[in-house]
Write a protein that binds this DNA or RNA. Structure first.
Lengths: 96, 96
DNA sequence: TTGATGCTTAGAATATTATCTAAATATCTA
DNA sequence: TAGATATTTAGATAATATTCTAAGCATCAA
């Protein structure tokens, strides 16, 4: 649901996480080290990002590796463009 | 600040308001009539949208007319694209 | 000028979210 | 197996956000 994506993106920590993953996959510990926050809190944020499918998680041994998934952005951008162009999108409510 | 834009967009009511304004400007009362919500609550949402510069407001007589402003989307879309393309954006933190 | 209409602001109640500590689970290593 | 490391889950607390009612301000129309 698109709702989850907007929710996930409405937080500076989570947006920063996505920016860090831009350079490549990182595990939960590596990500957590970049923030002034407990691992539990980080895990919470990572859960929201994974729920929104903005990241993929993969367990490798004792580590959990997170990787950016940008395919979800397509829907958001189309929605924004549909507001810009009167011709496109025709008030599609499936994205709200 | 981009923070306000993400915040403003993280709400189904506010996203629906923007969709309604897609067809053209509407006053606060016309917008409010489309939602099951008091005028005070609507006013709150319109304030957040105006703060984020996603809408322009103009007073005409006793009415306050709201109009969509999509220029703000540019920044969000660039940020998303910078996550998609490794080549672009180069971890610019001004958008977080 | 009085009353009605349109909209916003103030303040309170409720719901949601972010964060923490403590504890649990899973994996690795000696 | 025992202990150490990596991560998540549970439960509590504090901060934010949504919504309401009541009251306020501005404008219009009689």
């Amino acid at each position: 649901m698109v709702n989850k994506v907007w929710k996930a993106l409405d937080d500076p920590t989570r947006r920063r996480i996505l920016e860090l993953l831009r350079e490549g996959p990182l595990n939960a510990g590596e990500l957590g080290a970049r923030f002034n926050m407990t691992g539990a809190s980080m895990s919470h944020h990572l859960n929201l990002l994974a729920d929104a499918e903005l990241v993929e998680r993969e367990k490798r041994g004792q580590f959990v590796i997170y990787e950016l998934n940008t395919t979800v952005f397509q829907g958001l951008m189309e929605w924004m463009l549909s507001l810009k162009d009167k011709t496109k999108g025709e008030s599609d409510e499936s994205n709200t």
